[in-house]
Nucleic acid binder design. Structure first.
Lengths: 198, 198
DNA sequence: GCTTGACTAGACTGACCGGTCAATTATACT
DNA sequence: AGTATAATTGACCGGTCAGTCTAGTCAAGC
């Protein structure tokens, strides 16, 4: 009758995990919200953990083809891409807070801190997502160096630092439940630099 | 008979919350590890949540009088204090990983992401801890400016950015379960700058 | 018409959750 | 010594957890 139970479970779980947490959201609640019965859930997903794996994949895809793809549009001048990244993070968090009253933060960062001491498979998956984003930042930096927009630097390490900064800013903003932290402090991402070691 | 049940509960809970998570560690497990009965637990703490509040206070105290106090020793040249901060974070995480096999990350950061969408009181307490640390970094920056070690900047915003970066680096390192991330990327904290707005 | 297999329904399981409570023991003060 | 109070014990509670299981629906292929 319903169009697609599996994808409904998936997107519902993603929303709930994002706005609360993995541990805090039970299978029953996901089923209720997705208007699906327990039996159907376990028909599509062997376990809650496997659902989490699927959610990360799902989100990573949308992330990659969504605003990250836009932010890292190679038509844009490299340095602008970093501003775009911060802007996107800001507006996203702000919109979520305006609607739900709470800043959800970054799903990947949230999950990373929650599960990475308990589940190495989930941890590896999240590491891969982070690495992918870092690589996009690195490309941006390489472009910026190539176009002489910035001085040469260690693009991989600097990209890692920038990703860490982005996650840290979102963490702090979420703790204060105030997206303005992203807008005000975020742009400092451009000042981060790690020199190449010879 | 036993020396101090309350403090035993407190330190046990701190360790368990740090190495796993708030949600993942139950009251029973805390009691077992602290060799205390359920009833004694609820004699000292009205609820698990109140224990979390006490754990944050406890940790914040030790944090403030421990290596943070050392790192922010005003005898040290200001810029060195930032290096000391990164070093301390690195060695702490590395030691924990060598012993337990896992990087626990920052207790405050972990808790912040886990509970701040659910509990505003805990969130406020964690915000206060972060603000205190940010203020210590700000003092450091003000000292650095005063001694002409660095160019003038917006010390409060820059300090916020630095704290965010520290938390982000620890988050990323924890996700990779690799403290080296802190050592390699951490020192970039000194390159962060937010100019004063006139 | 019959079979097959994907999908749904929802009661049920055993473990575990945070928390309660009455009874007991240890400690401290008068 | 007597008494109040602090600390401790461990059985117990209702509820919820992830996950299981059986029964059944339904559409496609033969």
């Amino acid at each position: 009758m319903e169009i697609d139970s599996r994808s409904r479970i998936l997107s519902t779980a993603r929303e709930l995990f994002h706005s609360r947490s993995y541990a805090d959201v039970g299978v029953k609640e996901i089923c209720d919200s997705a208007r699906v019965q327990k039996g159907s859930f376990y028909h599509f997903f062997p376990s809650k953990r496997d659902l989490a794996l699927a959610v990360i994949d799902d989100m990573a895809d949308e992330w990659a083809h969504g605003f990250v793809a836009e932010a890292f549009d190679r038509e844009l001048p490299p340095v602008e891409r970093l501003d775009y990244l911060i802007d996107a993070a800001y507006y996203w968090q702000k919109a979520a807070k305006d609607i739900e009253g709470r800043m959800p933060g970054c799903l990947f960062g949230n999950l990373a801190l929650e599960v990475s001491t308990r589940d190495d498979v989930l941890r590896a998956k999240l590491t891969a997502v982070f690495n992918k984003t870092r690589d996009q930042i690195r490309e941006t930096l390489d472009d910026a160096v190539a176009t002489l927009a910035i001085e040469p630097l260690d693009s991989e390490k600097t990209a890692t630092a920038m990703l860490a900064f982005l996650e840290g800013v979102i963490l702090l903003a979420k703790t204060r439940n105030d997206p303005e932290v992203v807008r005000i402090v975020g742009p400092a991402i451009k000042t981060l630099r790690i020199e190449t070691t010879h």
